[in-house]
Design a protein around this nucleic acid. Sequence first.
DNA 1: TGTAATTCCGACAGAAACGGTCGTATACTG
DNA 2: CAGTATACGACCGTTTCTGTCGGAATTACA
Lengths: 152, 152
Amino acid sequence: MLKLTKKADYGLMALKYLAEHPEMPALSAKDVADAYGIPAQLLAKILQQLTKSGLLRSHAGMNGGYALARDAREISAFEVILSIDGPFFITSCTKGKTGCELTPSCTIKEPLARVNETIAGVLKSISIQDLAEHESPAPRAKESQQLVSLNR
Amino acid sequence: MLKLTKKADYGLMALKYLAEHPEMPALSAKDVADAYGIPAQLLAKILQQLTKSGLLRSHAGMNGGYALARDAREISAFEVILSIDGPFFITSCTKGKTGCELTPSCTIKEPLARVNETIAGVLKSISIQDLAEHESPAPRAKESQQLVSLNR
DNA sequence: TGTAATTCCGACAGAAACGGTCGTATACTG
DNA sequence: CAGTATACGACCGTTTCTGTCGGAATTACA
Ligand code: SF4
Ligand code: SF4
């Protein structure tokens, strides 16, 4: 169902960790993995992917590791998820393989596409910086504002 | 990744279909399945689940079938997804089985919980009625309003 | 130059979730 | 009673997810 993968989850944690240690020129995958208990080899691959997508900069060799490619507030959660989990779409009627074959007859794909846009917007509005600024166990008001308009 | 299951997808379609045919006292699972090309037996189980959750009312026997238990605008997409896919949470640190064991050390679960709330809010703001009012291929402005506030 | 640290890359395997089918029981209509 | 339809549980093949392994290429440093 509507759940992000642990990989994306790990990726966000790692990025946040990097954002919290701007003094370090680079942190190795193992450093980050140990800090949270994430499987090191798995995290390594995640960081590699993130690097390939241009969110991180890597440096091999001793004292090597990863660092944010941009300012933490210029990296959105959306980009991270996109990089790790691939194209973001809440329905199956995306492209190519294992797509939904009843796309032509489907009448809800268009409204759902709007929902998709909205959720993507939410994710885009969240930066790594936002995640790093933890604290604040404030209860937060849950006003039900108009978040998405399907029609018009 | 962040994708709803086809079951939930089918459920939404079915509900929308029922909402579009208020004149019928009841529509059988097969009727709906045929209308869209959904596997009949699968849809049957979905509708049963929806019934168990109180979103539909069922009636066995000839001329039986399903009908909305409430007005279409009183049923949210969130409820449908909840009913079919189970508890809604974008991360794995929910409850019980296969939960995330590094929950204690995790520092992003709290901010992510807010994101979760926000997305749930979006889903809750969408009713079956909204889906049924198709048409309107309006381009829709994509203003990037403040959709979620992580802090304070 | 050599060694250790570290990124890079692909393949693979176990486990879970998903999508779908089947068989059967039960309920209602006429 | 016969036919239609829901109700329910078991099952199975496929895909996706999570994690591991093995090795190659890079870099720092002694
Ligand atoms: S086409 Fe309709 S049914 Fe198929 S995936 Fe897209 S929305 Fe779901
Ligand atoms: S605890 Fe942290 S890592 Fe584990 S699922 Fe929740 S958010 Fe993801």
